[in-house]
Write a protein that binds this DNA or RNA. Structure first.
Lengths: 149, 149
DNA sequence: TACGATTAAATCGTACACGATATATATGTG
DNA sequence: CACATATATATCGTGTACGATTTAATCGTA
């Protein structure tokens, strides 16, 4: 009757599970580099475009300042990034990569690629999932944006 | 060149994003009931089978005792569940629903159903995603289990 | 039956994640 | 120029999440 109520049939839970599994996989793979999974996402964003304000970074990663500020400070303390107040607009903080983040890039990327290969995710599967998750993201985004109003 | 390195093309990030969007949607929908999204998942598991040990619950939800114990205690404090040491095996704690959790079930389920409907997720889309996420879960599970050894 | 190994929870430390609030800088309009 | 408004961060409080360690109960086997 209310089969749709079981954990097993909840899309939100399927996503939640996959998320925590990726979290574990990446955390373990990144452990030896001394970065966490969310910190790796920050590096990805900065490798793509070095020197971004906290706001820009937060928008790309869907993270508020309450999450980002302390995280970036930890990454600064461990030598991955640096934070500088913009001189043009003193409200802004510009976050950029330290040499360490550029030097270690290849090794980190390689490590992740190696581990992911072990999961045997097919290219078609990957592509399909990405496509469907983008559609889902679009719909959830519209909903969440509406609700803020 | 390394387009596969962009955030936009990372499966892990797509899952991460969808997860946090669901989190926001459910959190807002559940706010008036005084429960969080993870707590709602606990209720789902207990509505499905009332009276489970912390270990069983943790296995279904992929949560360790470091997460579950304090969460269940909060849910006990707010009157949703109760915790009782098993008399047969004093190591076990049996977690079961308080009347409040049974009384509010319909209202909670209705509220969630209403909000989800507003997202316009098609049945086919839902089914497809569930199917693919189950495959992904299987693969990530195998990987993560291997790594523990 | 004694005792080492296993199992179930609890506890601890660290790191997200989010909403709400505070603070400081910049901007727009009279 | 003055001042209300808007913007960018920072801070705070609460609640997950996870690995590691601790504690207590049970089990297996000599």
């Amino acid at each position: 009757m209310d089969d749709f109520l079981t954990l097993e049939n909840q899309l939100c839970f399927a996503v939640y599970e996959a998320g925590s599994q990726f979290n574990k996989l990446y955390s373990k793979a990144l452990e030896s580099f001394g970065i966490t999974y969310p910190q790796y996402l920050v590096l990805l964003a900065l490798w793509e475009e070095n020197g971004q304000s906290a706001k820009e970074l937060g928008e790309k990663l869907n993270l508020g300042t309450g999450t980002l500020t302390p995280m970036i400070k930890r990454m600064e303390a461990s030598g991955w990034v640096k934070r500088e107040r913009s001189t043009a607009d003193e409200r802004k903080v510009c976050i950029s990569l330290q040499p360490k983040a550029l030097e270690e890039k290849e090794a980190i990327v390689q490590k992740i690629a190696t581990e992911l290969k072990l999961c045997n995710i097919e290219y078609e599967e990957y592509k399909q999932l990405m496509k469907q998750l983008r559609v889902l993201r679009g719909k959830l985004n519209i909903y969440n944006k509406e609700k803020v109003k």
